[in-house]
Amino acid sequence: MHIRKNVNIASFIKEVGQCRGEVSFQTNEGDILNLSSVLSRYIFATIAENPEILYTSRIVCELDADRKLLGSFLTD
């Protein structure tokens, strides 16, 4: 799953805060940010300024419930 273009990233981060399981942001360079960590979220916020990395990286949810919760922000 990838982040859908032109979604509100602030709302996405806020919604990630509601997830029960692990939600990770995985870049093509192999970096993995666990978005339950505050530091990772801050790094992710910085990355969000760079569309090239933001939209080509993958979002991986550990739980189906979280995938549904974030559904409106994600695309295949």
Binding site: I9, A10, S11, I13, K14, G17, V38, R41, Y42, F44, A45, T46, A48, E49
Partner: peptide, 18 residues
Amino acid sequence: PDQNLMALFLMCDTEIMN
């Protein structure tokens, strides 16, 4: 310096958002 980033940073902070 970056208004959008400031909005994101606030959302990143669990202490505040909780």
